[in-house]
């Protein structure tokens, strides 16, 4: 067996601790129609994307935070601060109207793995990933639409998970 599989038989080698190289999980590509990219300033996300970071293992858990009492939209970027992303002004306008709802929504784009993340509301505060991330924008628009339609926070969360989870 000493030769089996090209074994490395010294005691010191036997004691070696294999480094966990990890598996590169980034998944790119996938089907994307022509119009899905290159529309204005939209990021060219493939339709099958799992998240803005492109990680296959972007957070998928249903881990919606509880909104902070008294939370407001004072941290949400103003229109003046969106000069480099005018296409995002409408959704930022919406989030400014519903900070207490947005603060109770989990963002599925993968940003939850970043330091300082708390809720979807954070995506609209400096550095405001929602300026470019279509998942942040989609969750923001859907949250606003369902809230205006009279849906409860739990119903909105369920819809968010169904569409983005």
């Amino acid at each position: 067996m000493a030769e089996s599989g090209g074994s490395e038989g010294s005691a010191s080698r036997r004691g070696f601790v294999a480094l966990c190289a990890g598996v590169a999980l980034a998944v790119v590509g996938g089907f994307r129609p022509a119009w899905a990219g290159g529309r204005g300033s939209r990021s060219p996300l493939p339709l099958s994307t799992e998240g803005c970071h492109g990680f296959a293992e972007a957070p998928r858990q249903t881990d919606h935070p509880e909104p902070r009492p008294g939370i407001d939209a004072s941290g949400v970027l103003t229109n003046d601060e969106l000069a480099d992303a005018p296409h995002a002004i409408p959704v930022f306008d919406k989030i400014r109207q519903i900070p207490q709802i947005a603060d109770g929504i989990f963002c599925h784009c993968g940003c939850a793995a970043l330091p300082g993340y708390r809720s979807l509301l954070i995506c609209y505060e400096e550095p405001a990933m929602a300026k470019w991330c279509e998942i942040c924008q989609g969750e923001g628009n859907l949250t606003y639409r369902l809230h205006k339609a009279g849906k409860t926070l739990d119903q909105i969360r369920a819809a968010i998970d169904a569409k983005f989870g």
Partner: peptide, 17 residues
């Protein structure tokens, strides 16, 4: 140098890694 160098391979299928 190892006679049998360490390798990794992975595949994701519909969320199963």
């Amino acid at each position: 140098v190892r006679a049998s160098e360490l390798g990794t391979v992975g595949q994701t299928i519909d969320g199963t890694v």
